[in-house]
Nucleic acid binder design. Structure first.
Length: 418
RNA sequence: GCCCCCAUCGACUAGCGGCCUAGGUCACCACCCUUUCAAGGUGGCAGCACGGGUUCGAAUCCCGUUGGGGGCACCA
């Protein structure tokens, strides 16, 4: 039987990173088995924001590299079918009218259980099960009816969802049984916590895919990181391409305990991916990122600066602070300037020919020798004067990029204001 | 309150009865490299929640406790 799963977000707002991780598991599972992965919007409630939310969800998944088969479907589109099925259940006696709503009859003895692909055997005493409402008195189906009904209609073989749905499962199992449907395999994935051990929320920084994107993370890194939250192919491998993840992913190896989102590790991983990018690819992505952020910096200069920062920053959003001096004037901290050294530096640099990183290096090293000072002593004031910070890309390359005139102008300005 | 789930270094995890004086990665610390910051290299710190069992032998199995999470809607 062909595997078929669904990603079923509710269009209430931004796609949450925990939910994305659940969708990623669905996708990895389906793609690794020649299966299908559907995108189904669970909107039993009409809302004006549905349109935008759906767009945001699709864009987020697309950016991450998670695709789906066929058109995006909407639960609301099957409202009539849901009504028909509910009436059928009433006529068959497994459901009944209750003040205009339709409820399903739940057994009140015994237990309802299933073999969860992630958590193992789970069962609930039937006494705990209420006669859940299938269709509201206004005719709209409830989630606990619409969701299993659609799973059946869509031929879903595996329901991979957040474990906050565990207690809905016995109810849905009975709905399926009343419908005459074969139940899918259920796999409940544990939730993701924020760094304070509590549920992920705004407080924890980036939370939606859009925010991660704006923070300068690349999709490959985010996917890799997300996959490793609650899943591991073995105890050793950490860096894996999408293809490798697809190839190695199994539901059996998804852990059953919740995982904490670790931004520091994500940053590290993003840096790994960034550094591994071919130089021109890196430059293109950096240009694209800055453009997305609304920074109108000259593309050729951004491209020229790219190699200087590739080994240095872990996220693209660090670029403006780290290399912004290439695009605008700086305000050096006077405390860090050394007028005597700057004076000698200005003289030495004025005579440097050609103005290239190599000859600048020769010039500055000679200057160190002449002054009898260590490079760190000589370079700091120059770096601060020219880049405005004690932390920057390589000094020679930075000087080269800024150019002779601008470099000297900044050094003179520093001498003047100091 | 009731029901369900979970429990290995600070974090993500490997471990599915002996290979474990518990391995890898991030973070952290030290040192090396070095024009700053990174990157890289080397080394280090650090964990099986607790209590009972079962067994020749338990991180691994069972029970309980504690702690965390989820659910108990004509929300999804």
């Amino acid at each position: 039987m062909t595997v078929r799963v669904r990603m079923a977000p509710s269009p209430t707002g931004m796609l949450h990173i925990g939910g994305v991780r659940t969708f990623l598991f669905n996708w990895l599972f389906a793609r690794g088995r020649d299966g299908e992965c559907l995108l189904r919007i669970e909107n039993t409630d009409t809302s004006r924001e549905v349109e935008e939310a759906v767009e945001q969800i699709e864009r987020s998944l697309y950016w991450l590299g998670i695709d789906w088969d066929g058109e995006t479907t909407f639960q609301l589109d099957r409202l009539e079918r849901a009504g028909e099925e509910a009436r059928r259940l009433v006529s068959e006696g497994s459901a009944y009218d209750d003040e205009g709503a339709i409820r399903i009859r739940m057994p009140d003895e015994g237990v309802t259980g299933w073999e969860d692909a992630i958590k193992g055997h789970i069962e609930f005493p039937n006494v705990e099960l209420e006669d859940v409402v299938l269709v509201r008195s206004d005719g709209r189906p409830t989630y606990n009816f619409a969701s299993p009904l659609e799973d059946w209609l869509d031929g879903i073989t595996h329901v991979v969802r957040g474990d906050d749905h565990v207690s809905n499962t016995p109810k849905q199992l009975h709905v399926l049984q009343a419908l005459g449907a074969e139940p899918p395999v259920y796999a409940h994935v544990p939730s993701v916590f924020g760094e304070d051990g509590r549920k992920l929320s705004k407080r924890h920084g980036a939370i939606s895919v859009d925010e991660f994107r704006a923070s300068g993370y690349v999709p490959e890194a985010l996917m890799n990181f997300l996959a490793l939250l609650g899943w591991a192919p073995d105890g050793e491998t950490t860096i894996m391409s999408a293809d490798e993840l697809v190839e190695r992913f199994t539901l059996e190896r998804v852990g059953s305990s919740p995982a904490t989102f670790d931004y520091a590790k994500l940053d590290w991983m993003n840096g790994v991916y960034l550094r591994a990018l071919p130089a021109d690819e890196y430059a293109s992505r950096l240009v694209g990122y800055l453009r997305d952020q609304g920074l109108e910096w000259a593309e050729d200069r951004v491209r020229a600066a790219a190699p200087l920062v590739q080994e240095k920053i872990a996220r693209f959003d660090e670029f403006p602070a780290f290399a912004g001096f290439l695009f605008h004037d700086v305000e050096p901290d006077r405390e860090l300037l050394d007028l005597r050294i700057l004076g000698f530096a200005e003289t030495a640099l004025e005579r440097t020919e050609p103005w290239s990183a190599a000859s600048l290096e020769a010039t500055l090293k000679r200057l160190c020798d002449d002054l009898g000072e260590k490079p760190r002593t000589v370079y700091l004031p120059i770096r601060v004067a020219v880049t405005g910070s004690r932390i920057s890309p390589g000094l020679y390359e930075s000087l080269e990029l800024i150019g002779r005139e601008a470099s000297l102008a900044r050094i003179r300005a520093a001498r003047g204001v100091a």
